[in-house]
C-alpha cells in the first residue's frame, strides 16, 4: 500500500478522481462542497482588495507623474502647481460623473420601487476566456444573504442590465455577466405588448461584446434599432430593465429566427454595479422570501 502511494502516476490519478467528484458535486444544488470556498473568502478577499488598492494607487501615482512631466515641458516654473491642479480637476470631473450616475440610479429606483438597490464596486474580472465570472464587493458580512437557487439582477449606474448574482460568500459575491455563455434572460421589445424573446450569451459573439436573441415568434419581425428590456417572466428580473438594442436580424430559417443584440452596458468600463434586491414586503416574486438584506451598505 505504501509503495502504491509512492507511485506518482497513482497519486495523480487519485487526485484527478477526487477533483472530478468535487466538480460533479458542485453541480448538484444544495451540495456541501460550496462551503470549501467560505474560508477562502475570509483569507483571499481582503488580500485581493489590498493588492487592488495598491495597484490603483501606483497607477494613480504614475499618471500624476506623467501629467506633471507634460506640464513641465510647457511651463517649467509652474510645473508643480499645474500638475497638482490638473490632478485635482481630474478628480473633480470623476466625482461629478459619478454623482450624475448615482443621481440617475436613484431616479430609476422610483420606477422599481419594490426593489432595494445596493451599490458595490467590482472586485475582480475574468481570469481567462472561460473563467469569466466577475466578483463584486458585496457579501454575507455586508448583510447580503442569498440562498441556493436564488438570484438578483445586477445593473449599472444607468440601470442597464449587467448580469445576475450567482453566489454570495462572506466577503463578496459572484456575478454572471450578460455576455457569459451561461446567461439567458426573457426579454421583450420595449413597446406596448412587445414580443417576448430570449436574450443569451454566445461564445461566438462574446469577444465582440454582443448577445444572441432567439425564440423570436414567427408572427413578429424584430427590426434593427428595436430596444429590448427584461420581460419580467420567470420572476427573477423585474420587467422593464433596459438590455440593449437590436443591430442585426437573421430570418433565413423560419424555425431558427435569430438576431444580434448590442447591450447598453459596457462591462469593460464598469467600476461599480448595483444589485436589485426585492423588498421583503413586496409581492413581486418568490425570490422575496429567499433574498434578504439585513443591513445594507
Amino acid at each position: 500500500m505504501r509503495r502504491l502511494f509512492s507511485n506518482k502516476i497513482f497519486i495523480v490519478i487519485l487526485i484527478t478522481l477526487l477533483v472530478v467528484v468535487i466538480i460533479i458535486m458542485s453541480t448538484i444544488p444544495g451540495n456541501p462542497i460550496r462551503t470549501i470556498t467560505a474560508p477562502v473568502s475570509f483569507v483571499i478577499d481582503p488580500i485581493q482588495k489590498g493588492v487592488k488598492s495598491v495597484g490603483e494607487g501606483i497607477t494613480g501615482f504614475f499618471s500624476a507623474v506623467t501629467e506633471g512631466m507634460d506640464i513641465r515641458k510647457e511651463n517649467e516654473e509652474l510645473k508643480a502647481e499645474i500638475a497638482q491642479l490638473e490632478y485635482q480637476v481630474a478628480q473633480g470631473e470623476e466625482a461629478i460623473r459619478r454623482w450624475e450616475e448615482l443621481k440617475d440610479a436613484f431616479h430609476i429606483k422610483d420606477t422599481f420601487e419594490n426593489y432595494r438597490i445596493i451599490g458595490a464596486p467590482v472586485l475582480t474580472r475574468e481570469a481567462d476566456e472561460w473563467f469569466s465570472v466577475i466578483r463584486i464587493d458585496l457579501g454575507q458580512n455586508d448583510g447580503f444573504l442569498l440562498f441556493q437557487d436564488q438570484s438578483c439582477a445586477v445593473v449599472d449606474a444607468r440601470m442597464n442590465l449587467i448580469g445576475r448574482i450567482m453566489t454570495s460568500e462572506p466577503e463578496s459575491s459572484k456575478v454572471l455577466p450578460l455576455l457569459h455563455e451561461g446567461f439567458s434572460v426573457s426579454a421583450k421589445v420595449n413597446t406596448v405588448n412587445g414580443a417576448v424573446v430570449r436574450v443569451s450569451g454566445e461564445t461566438t459573439l462574446k469577444q465582440d461584446g454582443l448577445c444572441k436573441v432567439t425564440r423570436i415568434p414567427v408572427t413578429i419581425d424584430l427590426k434593427v434599432g428595436d430596444e429590448l428590456v427584461t420581460s419580467g417572466q420567470g420572476g427573477l428580473f423585474p420587467a422593464g430593465i433596459p438590455i440593449g438594442v437590436i443591430i442585426s436580424v437573421d430570418y433565413s430559417s423560419e424555425l431558427n429566427r435569430t438576431a444580434i443584440l448590442q447591450p447598453y452596458a459596457n462591462l469593460n468600463d464598469i467600476k461599480d454595479v448595483f444589485v436589485m434586491v426585492p423588498e421583503e414586503n413586496s409581492d413581486t416574486t418568490a425570490d422575496t422570501e429567499a433574498v434578504s438584506v439585513v443591513s445594507p451598505r
Binding site: V19, I33, A127, M166, L236
Partner: peptide
C-alpha cells in the same frame, strides 16, 4: 435549467 451553477474544481483540474 435557467439557474446556472458555479462549477468548482474545473480550474483545479
Amino acid at each position: 435549467t435557467d439557474q446556472p451553477v458555479a462549477l468548482l474544481g474545473l480550474g483545479m483540474l
